[in-house]
Nucleic acid binder design. Structure first.
Lengths: 194, 194
DNA sequence: TATGCCCCCATACGACTGTATGGTTCCCGG
DNA sequence: CCGGGAACCATACAGTCGTATGGGGGCATA
């Protein structure tokens, strides 16, 4: 008989936590809310995560995993310039799926500003993504950029994309997808001149 | 006798609220905390702000006022390119004072992502600051940019600066002031071609 | 069959939350 | 002089918070 594969409760819990975060913010996350939304008891949540901070830490780790996955899963084609567009577009809230991810990232980034434990994780993922983008830029540029120039450009590129994403989700729909892609195109144009 | 000019309690309360936000995040703000830090009773806070949401709204208005003031107070000199640097440097966490402001802004921006009332205010201030930067860019550019090009560049510039600021405060001290100013210099260099 | 671990549940405790209520003091216009 | 509002305080209420405690099935291994 076809086995109905039930996902591990622990994974369900972090998914539910991230859902609540995307919809109502990290301040709306409580043990009871997570338990209720996951359809389990409070005790079950406590069994998998001994404390709330541990639960948030695990959720942030999952967020980092998703970012890593999204950046890594971009298939690099022969058109090196288009690769840069593809990678950076993945980080913008161009549809509801990506908007949800951005809302989650923003929530954790804001909390990291006053929570050293989360800040360390944030620093790691930022460094890693910056390095990935730097590699794409090094290929997309005409090979004239040194590695330090590529990294500088990657810093700017990631900051600009994250800034656009932050502006978009924090201002309602002031920045529509069309404006975002337009801005991204011009950003890339600026990045690819030596 | 020299009058010890006591500031209005209402202003003290929003200042205290912003202090708490900068140090421990918006999630640490409670009516009791604000009252205690301001040295007044709970009832006094309620007298000036009938509800907590009203208090947060007033605080966000004060944040917006500060941003507006900081951008407007930049003295524009004859060196048009340097003006752009001056304005954008004011938005980066280059010292503790500006880092505090950035932490506050980030906290409210994140909350605005799931609070429509705050999102509207955020959209307003973003539009206004973008317009200000666009004017500076229009002057700093060699006059060859049309107004729509200036606004596009302003979008990118503000996003990049806010993104850098977000990365800096959310990752501990991964981005030091030297790296930030270096990135800003190169960003401006990129902005001022064509 | 018995032991022990894993997963899940129900409940309780103390602390903290936002808000409501009523009182006191002070000053200012009638 | 006196009514009234503004500013401030103390306390209380109902609800939610995170966490601790103890128990109950299921399943593998001894």
């Amino acid at each position: 008989m076809a086995e109905l594969s039930t996902r591990p409760t622990k994974d369900v819990l972090t998914d539910v936590l991230l859902d609540i975060t995307a919809q109502h913010g990290l301040e709306a996350v409580s043990v009871r809310q997570v338990a209720a939304a996951a359809g389990v008891s409070i005790g079950t949540v406590q069994h998998h995560f001994p404390t709330k901070d541990a639960m948030l830490g695990a959720a942030f780790t999952e967020v980092v995993r998703r970012i890593r996955e999204r950046v890594a899963n971009v298939v690099l084609g022969p058109d090196v310039q288009r690769n840069l567009t593809t990678v950076l577009r993945e980080l913008l809230p161009l549809d509801e799926r990506r908007a949800t991810e951005v809302r989650i990232q923003v929530a954790f980034a804001a909390r990291a500003a006053t929570a050293p434990a989360l800040a360390a994780v944030q620093a790691d993922i930022l460094a890693e993504v910056t390095e990935s983008i730097a590699r794409v830029i090094a290929l997309a540029g005409h090979g004239t950029d040194g590695p330090e120039t590529s990294r500088r450009k990657a810093h700017i590129a990631l900051a600009a994309v994250d800034g656009l994403a932050l502006h978009a989700v924090s201002s309602g729909s002031w920045l529509d997808p069309a404006t975002l892609t337009d801005a991204l195109d011009h950003l890339i144009g600026m990045l690819l001149v030596p």
